[in-house]
């Protein structure tokens, strides 16, 4: 399982990376915004994307939309981990095809729960 973590704050990337490792996902890479992340996704064989929303360059929501409109990436599971919590933003992310949405600050338990749920659903479908 190869996972890309996208966040403009290196400390947050590090936290997510450590939590993922704790859950048994050791193969992770990092990008600091959507613009850097998109070519990595297009070039690499990533199985899962964890992204922040509010980033300079390309924001997480636009990265999600780009992923969904790319024929090679459209089925990539995407988990949003963000401080953005406006009702209309969550609706927008849902409409854009996000697979999970976590609001910061979050706990290790929440991350595990959402990831489990995403994979359960993928395996079930």
């Amino acid at each position: 399982m190869k996972i890309l973590i996208v966040d403009d704050f290196s400390t947050m990337r590090r936290i997510v990376k450590n939590l993922l490792r704790d859950l048994g996902f050791t193969n992770t890479q990092e990008a600091d915004d959507g613009q850097t992340a998109l070519p990595m996704l297009q070039a690499g064989d990533f199985d899962f994307l964890v992204t922040d929303w509010n980033m300079p360059g390309m924001q997480g929501i636009d990265l999600l939309k780009n992923v969904r409109s790319d024929p090679n990436l459209k089925d990539l599971p995407v988990l949003m981990v963000t401080a953005e919590a406006k009702r209309e933003q969550i609706v927008e992310a849902a409409q854009a095809g996000v697979n999970g949405y976590i609001v910061k600050p979050f706990t290790a338990g929440t991350l595990k729960e959402k990831i489990d749920k995403i994979f359960e659903r993928i395996e079930g479908s």
Binding site: E88, I102, V103, F106, T110
Partner: peptide, 10 residues
Amino acid sequence: EDVLTSQDDV
């Protein structure tokens, strides 16, 4: 009122 305050609300 346009902002959700917890993961449960989300």
